[in-house]
């Protein structure tokens, strides 16, 4: 337990000391929020032409509102995107959570850990826990940025909602870091890990409801989106932040929970097996 704590602190200390790198981790999210989120304003795209007789304008406007709200849960695309991006950023930061293990292997620090009597899973879990903490701190910063950029929070939003939001994203971070650290258990070169990461990040993002609603997708893509943890995290986050009734998030909570538990068990078992010898 002391070892797990000490190893987690090591990860966080090293992260904290790379201040410049931390600043850079915010640039991509900022691009998405400020550039993509703000320019893709779907609601403004659906302007009613000026030659429409004035007596219809109200009805057309209502129809447009209903279409947009039923698709996005909000009239404001920025809010839709931002609430989707919170989970995507958790994915982005978790994707690199296995990297420290790969570098430890390369630089020989892993030998130091393997030759010591610590429980093998603490090598694994220290990266998972530190990644959850890192991801949530980053989320906090992004949440504030999104608010500044005009995130529309539902009127019902309370401290309970905020806590639930953190729990949801913590679960997502746990699931994703489990998966990416498991992939890194036996990888020797960081190029391999980067290649895997690059292969997975965009498809995972697009095959979910992060940028566009799921029900606009072809059937096969919907099926993929259904099993993508991002989709479920987005459903919960949007329900909490926007408060629209897009879906009942209990199933999504359960799904995230089950994925989290399963990947944690798998990670612990695999690290016990694969981290015995160098």
């Amino acid at each position: 337990m002391t070892a797990l704590l000490a190893l987690t602190m090591r990860e966080l200390k090293k992260w904290y000391r790379r201040r410049i790198a931390i600043i850079f981790t915010f640039i991509t999210p900022l691009f998405w929020l400020a550039l993509f989120g703000k320019s893709m304003n779907l609601y403004n795209l659906l302007q009613i032409p000026s030659n429409v007789p004035p007596e219809f304008i109200q009805y057309i406007q209502e129809a447009i509102d209903q279409i947009i709200i039923s698709a996005f849960g909000t009239k404001d695309y920025f809010t839709f995107l931002a609430t989707g991006m919170f989970s995507v950023f958790i994915l982005f930061s978790s994707m690199f959570s296995g990297m420290s293990l790969i570098f430890d292997r390369r630089l020989g620090y892993l030998s130091r850990l393997l030759v010591s009597p610590i429980k093998r899973e603490s090598i694994f879990l220290s990266r998972v826990i530190s990644n959850i903490i890192r991801s949530l701190l980053q989320f906090t910063a992004l949440f504030l940025i999104a608010l500044a950029l005009g995130l529309n929070i539902g009127p019902q939003f309370s401290i309970t909602h905020l806590i639930a939001l953190y729990i949801t994203l913590a679960l997502l971070a746990l699931a994703f870091s489990n998966i990416f650290i498991i992939l890194s258990l036996k990888i020797e070169e960081h190029d391999t890990a980067i290649a895997i990461t690059n292969l997975l990040n965009l498809p995972l993002m697009f095959a979910s409801n992060s940028i566009f609603p799921k029900n606009q997708m072809p059937d096969w893509l919907q099926t993929i989106a259904e099993i993508n943890p991002l989709t479920h995290s987005n459903i919960i986050v949007r329900k909490l932040v926007i408060g629209s009734s897009l879906n009942i998030p209990l199933n999504s909570f359960l799904y995230l929970g089950i994925i989290t538990i399963l990947t944690t068990i798998l990670g612990v078992l695999l690290s016990r097996k694969l981290l015995q010898y160098l």
């Binding site: 070892a3 630089l107 030759v115």
Partner: peptide, 29 residues
């Protein structure tokens, strides 16, 4: 009951000497 000083220099160079030592100590309880 064993200690290893490996061939490569494997102390974590992003930590201080003392931090490395204390971390090592916690690995052994």
């Amino acid at each position: 009951i064993i200690g290893l000083v490996p061939q490569e220099l494997t102390a974590d160079d992003e930590l201080t000497g003392m931090e490395n030592i204390m971390l090592q100590a916690s690995l052994y309880g």
